[in-house]
Design a protein around this nucleic acid. Sequence first.
DNA 1: CATCGACCCTGCGGGC
DNA 2: TGCCCGCAGGGTCGAT
Length: 332
Amino acid sequence: MPELPEVEVVRRGLENWITGRTVETAEVFHPRAVRRHQGGPGDFIDRLTGRTLTMPRRRGKYLWIPLAETGEAMLAHLGMSGQLLVGEPDQPHEKHLRARVTFADGGLDLRFVDQRTFGHLMVDALVPDAFAPAALVLDGGTADASDAGTDRTPAGSTADTHNGGTAGAADAGRPQVPLSVAHIAPDPFEESFAEERFFRALRRRDTGIKRALLDQSLISGVGNIYADEALWRARLPWARSTGTLTRAEVGRVLAAARAVMGAALEVGGTSFDSLYVNVNGESGYFDRSLQAYGRRDEPCARCGTPIRRDVFMNRSSYSCPKCQPKPRHPAR
DNA sequence: CATCGACCCTGCGGGC
DNA sequence: TGCCCGCAGGGTCGAT
């Protein structure tokens, strides 16, 4: 369940079902599922076995579960088709079951199911979060001091999901992220998301606004669906050059992104089919509320003009040709 | 350094 | 029926 709301739905499910439980066994059924884990499947299994899982965390589309007292976390990225499911241990294996964790209490197990295998699991070291506001860093880290106090609207209830769990005494209270997530920018619901930094990064670039929204090193959590929805709400065309955006326009698209992702989260995310489900296998309902994505030739909810579909970055972009008029000097 | 296309996979629905 | 094509919400990597 690729984008931020769907991953947050999964995180909340895991928080409810696996926090505080101790791993009895870990199994890997397809090596590609742990291809990014240094050391291979055997080492992945060794690092999980016997460990106690703490509160699941998330940044953008990345999800991780700090392991108590190890300085490491189990990291998951769902890719295009990954699912994290809880189920009875004696349940038959799903067709695309790639890995499984069972627990010492004998209760529900945790399964990673992934049809296309673009997703992955790994055990990764936790490192200080370089994006943390300076005020939160106790020992004078590398965070940009200009981030502190930046105007921001922490909508939704996901703002506390970015802290690492098991900081050592010297780093007490300092936010941590897995090493593999260190290059990923905060998502727009995080305390550490700095709107001014985002604006300046956009102005420095020479690219289109949609490409920038999908660039997880600038802003994380936004994917193809919510990028189209946010741009439709903000009345900006996907090809609009980032170099000419005003603060007001960037504010509009950020507010739209938060609003649309927040609304999606409230109804369990967007599910077109059974590929995108929560940890109990249930679908979300936000597909009924989409105003642009997937609505080719249907009337725009604002002006009635048929929604158009363009191919961009080898994927679909949906927009209203009237509400989101093509820029005169579009970026690539 | 910034940017962009190729590539990684499986399955589904539509056209022929 | 079967085959082929386009399409699917992801990120990484190498070439430029």
